[in-house]
Design a protein around this nucleic acid. Structure first.
Lengths: 166, 166
DNA sequence: ATGTTATCTTTACACCATGTCAAGAAAATA
DNA sequence: TATTTTCTTGACATGGTGTAAAGATAACAT
């Protein structure tokens, strides 16, 4: 909080005046970034995709390329989630929103009879959500040094392998 | 540290006497658990597997079933890794050891010409390591409520889909 | 059994981050 | 110009990590 105040050229207490708790500041930051980077517009191609496979492609690409934009604040929230219930809730909200996108992909695949047989819709969403998690991005891109393109390409392939009927 | 001392029926300072820093205690705990639960023995079936696919199966099963045994202390180390360089090193050491197992699987698959063509050995190890990460276990088993069996089964299938030639 | 050493307890303190509180200055607004 | 909002300054509470020193207790060796 001190560092942020300093960076903003304002006193530490002024920050607390606007954001009583650390987690409030982080929540407000995500709201701001989501609006600034226009997450909704980025997801539009997925929503208007003509079929399940195209929808999956567009979804992984949109979300996967959004992760680096929000990684900083997401990481901060995630590191609070162990001890702070509100941080946990904030993260769960986002995961819930992301899961809805996953379910839309899965529903479309299922309607086209292209969903793999060995998964319920719930399990498929769990697995899809796991594959596109921030943690996996962090590992591949930040730890292993993969390029953003390589990441998108392989996570897409993996998601298809997991969800789509052979 | 207070809680641990209390649980151990000893003063807080007695703990600091044996483990000067929090991270030392966690490192010692992992060493102890590894020895107690005999991680080496658990991985033996993978090392003696007759072929790459069997080795992959055995590796995912051994490690995947080991994760819940060490999750507590691993989580504690991981949550320190952001701020503590030694915690980061400790975790990297373990990841390095895990990666060697991944590389053994990949090397064997490659020797049998069963490794997928669109991945270098390094990339294959990165991807394999990502799939069997503690974070993915955490998400599927703890968050989504998957059974240990279901987790092993699907992560194994996913690893095969990612690594093995069609 | 006695002296020595290692271990543990008690108490106190330093440091740092989060969060609170109150008084007054500065800025915006009516 | 009066009022309200915002910001600053400085002080304090809390909780966790880590340090330091003095004395108690246990284990051990001769």
């Amino acid at each position: 909080m001190s560092d942020i105040a300093k960076e903003a050229g304002v006193s530490r207490q002024a920050v607390y005046l606007h954001f009583p708790k650390r987690v409030e500041l982080l929540k407000a930051t995500t709201r701001f970034v989501d609006q600034q980077k226009d997450i909704d517009e980025r997801l539009a191609p997925s929503r208007s995709a003509p079929n399940g496979v195209a929808r999956l492609d567009a979804y992984v690409e949109a979300w996967g390329n959004y992760i680096p934009e929000i990684y900083g604040v997401v990481h901060a929230i995630l590191s609070m989630a162990d001890t702070d219930a509100e941080a946990r809730d904030t993260w769960e909200d986002r995961m819930h929103a992301l899961r809805e996108g996953c379910q839309a992909v899965i529903g479309m695949l299922s309607a086209e009879n292209r969903l793999t047989g060995d998964l319920s819709h719930e399990q498929a969403a769990d697995l899809f959500l796991t594959l596109i998690s921030v943690q996996n991005w962090e590992h591949l891109v930040r730890q292993c040094g993969w390029s953003q393109d390589m990441y998108i390409q392989h996570i897409t392939a993996l998601s298809k392998a997991a969800l789509i009927k052979a």
